[in-house]
């Protein structure tokens, strides 16, 4: 099983995101083997969630289908995952070279938006998610707009928009990829806000 990892979660601060050490997850009885090993934590409101990094996948956002993909140029063997639609394309690599391919894609097109791909379980087939950029912050309801603005400025962040789904819920701008996860965790763990979570792209299906 995946044991509670809260105690293992590194204090992130402004440092680079550190993956949580994989707890004992010993698949048995041959039902399926866990393919993914590196896990990260994020916070969905008050609830702590785990995601598994998939090193064989990368996400590319905003590249229209008719334009050449920077990922594809960086890694010609990349194959679009079935179900890729709209602004998000999930590329499957011919190995576990996601980190390298992401670097190369950024070199090919620095203006592009790329992200590692995570799964909601240790199996490769589990639901996928990625980070197009942005953090959703639930500020304390009694904060004023000027307080929120001042705090955001003090953190070197800027507001993208307000979400009208409750009091003081804002979207802050971040770079795509790990930067969004790192920023969300840092804000959440600061204790200054109610909660903070990355703006995830999430795999869904029509029914």
């Amino acid at each position: 099983m995946l044991s509670k990892t809260m105690g293992l979660l590194p204090l992130l601060g402004a440092l680079a995101l550190v993956p949580v050490a994989q707890a004992q997850d010993t698949p048995s009885k041959g039902k399926a083997a866990a393919a993914l090993a590196t896990v990260y934590i994020w916070h969905d409101g008050e609830s702590e969630h785990t995601v598994w990094l998939n090193p064989a996948l990368v996400a590319e956002f905003g590249a229209p289908p008719h334009k050449e993909s920077a990922v594809k140029r960086a890694h010609p063997a990349a194959v679009a995952e079935p179900g890729s639609r709209g602004l998000a394309r999930i590329w499957r690599l011919d190995g576990d070279g996601a980190e390298h391919v992401l670097r190369q894609a950024r070199a090919v097109n620095p203006a592009g938006k790329y992200s590692p791909v995570f799964s909601d379980g240790p199996a490769d087939g589990a639901r996928k998610r990625a980070l197009p950029g942005g953090v959703i912050v639930y500020f304390k309801p009694d904060w004023t707009e000027s307080q929120i603005s001042a705090w955001t400025d003090s953190q070197g962040l800027s507001i993208a928009r307000k979400l009208e789904i409750g009091p003081n819920i804002y979207v802050l701008k971040t770079a795509p990829g790990f930067a969004a996860l790192e920023t969300a965790n840092r804000i959440h763990q600061s204790g200054i806000v109610v909660s903070a979570q990355p703006n995830w792209w999430v795999q869904v299906t029509t029914r």
Partner: peptide, 18 residues
Amino acid sequence: WGAPDDGRWNGSAATWRS
């Protein structure tokens, strides 16, 4: 639409519930 119908416990986001 929704999460893949794969038998896993696929949760919803707090923002969606809000």
